[in-house]
Computed example of a mutant assay.
Amino acid sequence: MARHAIIYYKENLAGYLSETDEGYTFIYDDNYLQYKDAMPVSLTLPLQSKAYESRVLFSFFDGLIPEGWLLNVAQNYWKLKGNDRFELLLTLCRDAIGAVSILPQEEEVADV
């Protein structure tokens, strides 16, 4: 079963992250690529129209997931599995520190 996330850079819809049985895909939104001030979500994911693919969660997104005691508190509160990195990302990184936010695709809102 595939799971999907919507990636925002500041207030702008920047792209889409998907998890499938084969791995992960990140692709920038076509409209985002047209913005004159568009910025990559990460230096490791430069702006391009072609999708990025990886067998493991991209290091940038994995790095947004809290660590240590904060991760333990979150796992216990939401009863999350520590090895399900995509679920941790979807649950814990909606209001991540910095310019990037991650929302589960079914929860996209127009005024983020």
Rank of each mutant, 00 (worst) to 15 (best):
C93P: 05
N31D: 10
A2F: 06
E87A: 00
I7Y: 02
T20R: 14
P40E: 05
A96P: 05
P66F: 02
Y52R: 01
D62M: 02
L90R: 00
A38M: 08
G98F: 09
L13N: 02
P46C: 09
A51P: 13
P66Y: 02
G63E: 12
N76P: 01
E19T: 06
K79T: 10
F60M: 07
G15D: 01
K81N: 14
A96C: 14
F60V: 07
L90T: 02
G23Y: 06
W78T: 00
L80A: 13
D21G: 13
G98Y: 06
A74I: 02
L57Y: 00
K81W: 03
A99I: 01
C93S: 03
D37F: 14
F61C: 05
P46I: 08
A74D: 12
C93D: 05
E67H: 11
Q75E: 15
W78H: 10
A51L: 08
K10P: 02
A51H: 10
S59Y: 08
P40H: 01
T44D: 15
P46F: 11
E106C: 06
T91I: 06
S54M: 07
I7G: 00
A110I: 11
G15W: 00
A96L: 09
I65N: 03
W69M: 12
Y16W: 03
F86R: 02
S54D: 11
P104L: 08
K79G: 06
L71D: 10
P40T: 03
W78M: 04
E107H: 14
K10L: 11
I27Y: 00
G63T: 12
T91R: 14
S42V: 10
D30L: 04
Y52C: 05
Q34G: 00
F26Y: 05
Y28S: 07
L92S: 05
R85D: 04
A96R: 13
D111C: 04
Q75P: 02
V73L: 13
G82L: 08
A99L: 07
L64K: 15
Y52Q: 05
L89M: 00
D84M: 06
A99C: 08
L43K: 08
D30G: 01
D30M: 04
P46D: 08
N76V: 08
L92M: 11
N31Q: 01
P104C: 06
L33V: 13
L47D: 03
A14G: 06
D29W: 01
N72A: 13
D29Y: 01
K50M: 13
Y35E: 04
G63Q: 13
M1A: 15
L13S: 00
V109Q: 10
L33P: 02
Y32P: 05
A38D: 09
Y9I: 02
A2H: 09
D30C: 00
E22V: 07
Y28Q: 05
R55F: 09
S18F: 03
A38K: 09
V41P: 04
A110K: 11
S42E: 07
V112Q: 03
E19R: 15
D21Y: 09
E22W: 12
P40F: 06
L71A: 15
E108H: 14
L71I: 09
W69T: 07
G23C: 01
V100S: 09
A110V: 12
G68S: 00
E53Q: 14
L88P: 01
V56S: 14
S49C: 10
N76E: 13
K10Y: 03
F61W: 05
D84I: 04
D37S: 15
G15H: 00
